[in-house]
Design a protein around this nucleic acid. Sequence first.
RNA 1: GGCGGCAUAGCCAAGAGGCUAAGGCGACGGUCUGCAAAACCGUUAUCCCCGGUUCGAGUCCGGGUGCCGCCUCCA
Length: 529
Amino acid sequence: MNPAPIELHDTLSGARRPLETLEPGKVGIYCCGPTVYDLTHVGNARAAIVPDVIVRFLRQQGYEVKYVRNITDIDDKIIRRSLEEGRPAVEVAARYAAEYHRDMADLNVTPPDVEPCVQDHIPQIIELVRSLVDKGLAYAVDGDVYYRVRAFPGYGKLSKRRIDEMIEGAGSRIEVDERKESPLDFALWKGAKPGEPAWDSPWGSGRPGWHIECSAMSSTHLGDSFDIHTGGRDLVFPHHENEIAQSQGAHGEDTFARFWMHNGFINFAGEKMSKSLGNFFTTREITALYPPETLRYFLLTVHYRSGLNFEIEVACPGCGADLGPDEQETGLCRACGHRTDTEELRRRVRFPGLEEADDRLAYVYGTLLKARAFLAAATRPSGEEPLGEATAGMLAAFVEHMRGDFNTGGALGALSKPLGEVNGLLDSGKGVGKAARYLTLERFVRDMEQVAAILGCFGQDPATWLQLRRDMKAARLGLDTERVERLLAERTAARQGKDWAAADRIRDELADLGVGVQDGPEGSVWAFL
RNA sequence: GGCGGCAUAGCCAAGAGGCUAAGGCGACGGUCUGCAAAACCGUUAUCCCCGGUUCGAGUCCGGGUGCCGCCUCCA
């Protein structure tokens, strides 16, 4: 157990605070998981990867972590979807839960210790609602039960707003239900409508409202009080505000989550991802183009609380010009007048940020591959030698950044110098003793395993990953790899005959395909330019 | 309208009072190379504007300006 403090930003206090857990050495964390009504999008991916890295880091630091991430499988959106698909809501939920699990596995997200779902917690939910009614914090109307927001003094403390301001601002936007005492009162229990999933309750047949499940499931699995609660920024209000009202209303003001962590949004072309804007991308659309780890790495290059911009490039199929945002929307190229339909444009989208992440990952894995090959071919020296300075300090610097509110961006930056140092040693090793060279590389490889355990990146077999990456990039670019191999063989023959002119001509031809060659002592290999 | 967040080099991005403001991409120069590429080395910023607090501020406070988000389903 490392005594150095871990600091994290808490939304409720609005400040960075040292992590002090309820029980020393133990952390209970609740993560608001998905509502399973559709395929996960990249925003969902981020909301899962962020707590995953937090949990991994806390464990690496010696904490015993109990990680709970729920699945919301009863909800208006699921019911709507089930009507669209003409299938029972439970089937819809089960299907998208399975898809979610597949995406999470692809993205190397550690499964939670407990993954509760609403359907399995109806009794706990009813009990919680009943206790709120008993305390005067909720009231039943016609089979519905509403939370009496004005009866909870702290309402608004998380999202930093006041009830009166909200009513004023929202008056024109919320359809006021006359049966509610206040427009802000929210449903804890909804009376059954025909065709909807329903359970018996003291207020008649019905189902839980949106927020109550997280209050019930967190206390069931982590207790009335626990350490960390995470979710996307948009959940601050109303979801988490309402959770606080429910849980503290039922269990006391000094209960519930001690730290609230919220991850920032992913934006496309500078604006929030949204279906209506057509800038909505599922996780799978991305992982069809790039290795899943590339997406994961890309999401970790920025601090979790910041917004993250996904730049999009689409070239006009007609003239190759980059299309601007409005051209992307209309599909009409201003330069040549070519019109392209939306589906076609989506297939042609390129993500410069992901390209860069992909290249960077290839550099890291390439380094790892070379370092391991070197170590496998050499014998370990006996005795001790001072290691390369950057490599020796790498893990400590990395961890230091992580301790400061899980700053993955800064932590990743701490790998650069060591990476350069290691590649330098691999290249020549000049000016460094043989033993120091070996031991530095050994240390690097070993510490990168720690880094990989924390980030969930850099942990695959380098050769396998590099191959996957190359295949996907070839597919993405429409590269004929057989032709490349053939040209490469021709060039090798030319070089052996010292026919430099022919060799250079073939190299130009390969360059036109987007491929560069690297000549080394063991022959030539190709890579993307 | 209310509330919140952000503004650091050509682009992305760390930084939460104090040694020479991380890192990545790009660009330029060099090493290596048949020439290249890859890899390595080097160069490339005084932090939106104004005022204040402090011995000292990118970092704190006040006022501008500009983006973004939430207030309705949203990760």
